[in-house]
Structure formats: C-alpha cells, structure tokens
Design a protein around this nucleic acid. Structure first.
Lengths: 333, 333
DNA sequence: TTGTAAGCGTTATCAC
DNA sequence: GTGATAACGCTTACAA
C-alpha cells in the first residue's frame, strides 16, 4: 500500500494525497475528506524511508552513554528522551562502554543512520589528549554535538555542565562546618568532571589551612564492598580521616558501610557527602548528604539548545550552571 | 557527496561503487581498492535513507519502557541495546510513562520510523482488559513484538519472562525458614508480574498454614519514606508482622528503615526480602536478601529470538525461566 | 568483472 | 485547487 494506491482509490493524483498527508491548506475540504477516508480505510502509513529521503531527515537524534544502567546516566537518558520526544524527535540510544574503539564504532553506527544531532552523556567521552578527541571534532563537522556534563572546544560543539568544581568545594566546606578536621576524597575515574570535583575538594582544603597531598584522594573503581575495604586499608595504615567526600552516591554508600562497621557515630565522629542526588542517597541509613547537579535542567537546556541550533540560531558554546547541596543525616544531627 | 560523485572520481559505475560498499565479492581487487581510496579521501558515508528505501529496513528496533531511570528497566535497556548492537541493530528508545494514551502515541512514533521489531520492557504495558491491549495486537500485525517480563497471547507476540510466582513463593518460604511467623507483602502496582508475585506469596502462606487475607498485602506506590510510614501505620494499628517480602528492592529498603527506626533486630526479630537483585540490595545496611530475575539472560534471549523470527524461523510464543535467591544479611545471621 | 537502467515511495516545482 | 513530473541516492536484475 503506497501513495499511488491511495491516489487511485481516491481518484486524485499523488500530489494531492501528499498535500493531505502533510496538512497543506491548498486542498479543498471535499477532496481532503475523500482522501482521508481512503487512507483510513486502508490504515495506510506513509513510508518513512521515502519520506526521509526527500526531506533528508528522519527527525532522529543519537544519545551516547557509556552505561545506561548507571543511575546518573539513566536519569539523563530519561529526561533527554522525554524532552526530545516533546519536540517530535526520536532517540537512538547507544551504550558504548568505556573503550575508545567501541565509542568510535557506535558513532559510526549513528552517523550511518543519518541522525540530526548527537548527545554525549558524561565526560567519559572526552579523552585526555586532543588527538584522541578528533573523532568528536570530525563528527561535529557533520552534525551538532552536545556534551552533557563534559567540555570540549570546537566548531559545532556545545557543552552544558554543572559547575562541579565549586559544588565540590561547597560540599567539602560543609564537611568542615560539621566538624571535620581531616576529610578525604573518593573518586571513581579521573574524567573531566572527576578532575574538577577533586580540584574543588583541594581548594576547600587549602582554605581550611590544609595542604592537599596525594594521600587524601583515593580511587575506588570497584563495587561498594571494595570501597569499604579501601577505607579499612587506610585505617589499618593509620591514615586518619574523619570525613569522606565522594564523587558519587555509591562511593558514599561505601563510606557509610565503613563507618557502621567500625562503630563510628555519624555525623559526630564521621561525616559523609555524596554526589548526584540519586536514589541511593535516600535509600541509605543514615541518609546521605548529596549534591544535586540538576540532571533534568541540564537535559532540558541541551534539547532547547539543539532546537535553536537546528533552527539556524546562534547559541553559546558553553553553559555552566550551579548545583545545590541537599543535606541529609550524614552531616546533620 | 553521493554515489555518483564517487563513481566519477573512481572512474567506475555507481553499480560498482555499490558493490564495494556492500562487500560484494564480484569486484576485482584493483577496482575495489581504487573505489575505497576515493571513498576514504572524501570520507563518504552512503545516505541511510536512500539505502533503507531500497532495502525496506534500517536495521533498527524500538525499545519501549515506562521509565528509563528505574533501576530494573535501566538494566534491561542496557543489556538489550548491547545485544542488539552486536547483531547490527540500532535501538530507538521510548520512555512512555504510565498512561495508555502516551504509550499509544509512542508506538505511533516508532511505527512511523519503520522499525523492524519492538521490545516492551515490563508488564506495565499489558492492560487488564483485552480491549485496551488491541493497540499491541494491532502492532504485531506489522512487526514482531517481544514482551520482556510481560505476557500477552497473540499472533507475532513473544513473551519472555521470569517465573515470578514460584520465585516469590520460594523467597517467602525462606522468610518462614528464617523464623518468620507473620510475613506481609509490599507491592508497588498490580501489573501482570505484580499479581503473579502476590500469588506466590499467598501460596507460601497457605503452605505454612496461614489463610491469606486482605491485610497481608499492601500497596506502597510512593518513595522510600512513604513505604516506611505505611509500615509504621500498620504497627500503630497493632497489625503484627515480623517479616516483609517486597516486590522490589526499593520497597525492601523502606522495610529496612522501618526496622532500624524501631530498634528491631535483623534478622532475629525482623526479616526482609527484596526483588530484582539491584544495586540497592547491596547498598543497604544490612544488605538485603533479594531475587535475581536474570535481566541479562532475559534480554539476550529476547534478542536471540528476534533474530530467529526475523530470519523466518519459528520460535515459542512463551519462554519462562526460573529466578534465583541471593541471600544477604536481612535473612542470614 | 563491470555497466545500464529500472525501481523504491515520497516531496516539491512547475504548469494549468 | 489540482496534476504531471523531476528529483532524492541507493540496490539490483539484466546485459555486455
């Protein structure tokens, strides 16, 4: 069933059918009704491929994330998709994992589907050397690229991110306020935003008269249980710490477990701060003070910017917004 | 830049370029190399729309979920996408929310993009009355439909699901084993799988000589804090319970909070079982006994079945597999 | 092994 | 208002 079949049955030309299909006003009411009836009767849907061949777009964008089952990324995916949909765009999702090669392959996949724009969730996609980022720069030559919580300078690349450095500083300041003397910092990876968070942590330390050294920030790439063990190892080495600032809420959960196991009172003896304002922060007992980095706002802004860019408007290449602290039981008595 | 440009530059016909593009063996090595060079030099990508118009497919499927930020669904999305990708399929994601009208609109969106198959994550999509399910049955007339953890009979519809009833019975049996006398059940919604879980719970009760009545199963659609309050309300009404079986891990977290607040010893005085084997089960203190419903297996099977169906093979319309209990601290001393 | 030419199902530009 | 007809960029018989 195609546009010819409809036109025959309705006794009009395919041009008229097309006009009806696309809501053109230049069709008489009588003809329109006649055509619509035939379309209905046959429950005909225009062929998407032919349509997009003419229009050179399928109103589809690509969303790249490293892991859709990660709580933060899952939220971003949700908000992005909803917002895109309300602007009549469909979303192709790609879970690339963490290897550069795979990221590139997924990018090929999306480009081979002729998507209109690309969203990268998280700063995992920004490689440390500029050379390794050429794959993004090259893509941006074809379609606009939006980096959510990542930053990269380049033509047709737009970065939307939370001011993680200042957020991380504020939340560390809070730990000091609540009586901490020797806070340490836990992170998962040293992505772009990961580095900014650490910088904020160190700035707070300096302002509180502590010289930031290497054994105040620790990498915990594993599951909760491992995070807990890493803290226990520090304790065994007699490294003193009475507060933990973490790069995400899951790491903070590890700190909670550690404190509970060793009978430390929270927050009197031990304070903990997470990051991302995820479900984990309120599922923990005690509930974890965390930083709301406004995922929904980030996604809404990104989609709005995309609509403007596709509409030929000029938008800033960087948008940085502030986060806000959500205080819970791990810092508040 | 199109196939004509390439053919001119390479001094061959478009047919030859097409053959090279599609890896046809009927091309001499010399010609192939010549064409590949030109393609490379111009970094040419064939137009996806023209291509799909000829082939009548874009190797794309639709994934429908109600909420991508839900831990269970997020996992399913991740595994589905990865598996599809490794079979050269791209995934269009739709987060429909929980209203029938929106689900239908999203379905239109996907069908208008001519996807090759459809995956529905979760039993939220199965409506209680058959009439309301016609929207799925109609879709299945066009393309195969795969229901993950949902069940609906119909031509071209394939259901892959965990045996939730028996799983729920086993995990309730475990609560009795660990000393429970009066377990209650918490659920979020009465979806298809939700009902099966309750049935399993009741069967266990019966086998342990308890007649299942209305005030043993409770709906807790809200956040953790509310779940906790609902349990407190029961306690205030002097309804006795010494164990909680929950339809998901988040509900179980609510039960943990309740127990901790009221000084109940876990598992001596109070036992808790969750469901889904999510991150929450190990992030809780104490860690929560949960049921692994094998999301990854479910997704891998579904994609494998899709490949077979699209390949014209006959596959069973229903696949039911068993779950397994993961015991943690809330039932084990 | 390579080239010619006929589709694929739309949209859009013209005339009328 | 409506109808021919030429794109759009590719795949694939069929010829050579």
């Amino acid at each position: 069933m195609n546009i010819y079949d409809i036109s025959h049955q309705a006794g009009v030309s395919i041009a008229t059918v097309s006009r009806v299909l696309n809501g053109s006003s230049k069709v008489s009411d009588a003809t329109r009704q006649k055509v619509l009836d035939v379309i209905d009767k046959n429950s005909y849907t225009p062929n998407a491929f032919a349509r997009s061949l003419c229009l050179n777009t399928m109103s589809t964008v690509g969303i790249l994330c490293s892991d859709a089952s990660d709580a933060y990324q899952a939220q971003a995916i949700y908000f992005l998709e909803r917002e895109l949909r309300s602007n009549s765009y469909a979303s192709m999702l790609c879970c690339t994992g963490y290897h550069l090669q795979e990221k590139k392959e997924y990018l090929e996949l999306l480009l081979s589907r002729n998507v209109d724009a690309l969203f990268f969730i998280g700063s995992h996609f920004i490689e440390p050397t500029m050379k390794k980022n050429t794959y993004i720069l090259n893509t941006a030559k074809k379609i606009p690229v939006f980096l959510l919580n990542g930053k990269l300078d380049g033509e047709n690349i737009y970065s939307i991110l939370c001011d993680d450095e200042n957020a991380s500083k504020s939340i560390t300041d809070l730990l000091f306020d609540r009586g901490a003397v020797s806070p340490i910092y836990l992170y998962r990876t040293l992505s772009y935003s990961g580095q900014r968070k650490i910088r904020g942590f160190c700035r707070s330390l300096n302002e509180h008269g502590i010289k930031a050294t290497d054994n105040m920030t620790f990498s915990c790439p594993g599951p909760v249980e491992e995070t807990c063990r890493i803290l226990e190892a520090l304790r065994d080495k007699s490294i003193f710490f009475d507060a933990v600032a973490a790069a995400d809420d899951e790491l903070a959960v590890g700190a909670v477990k550690y404190a509970l196991r060793h009978g430390l009172r929270i927050p009197e003896d031990f304070r903990i701060a997470g990051y991302n304002n995820s479900l984990l922060s309120t599922c923990s007992s005690p509930e974890i003070t965390t930083l709301d980095n406004r995922v929904e706002f980030m996604c809404t802004s990104a989609v709005s910017q995309m609509m403007q860019v596709l509409g030929g408007k000029d938008v800033p290449s960087q948008t940085i917004y502030s986060g806000s602290i959500i205080e819970h039981e791990t810092t508040r008595k």
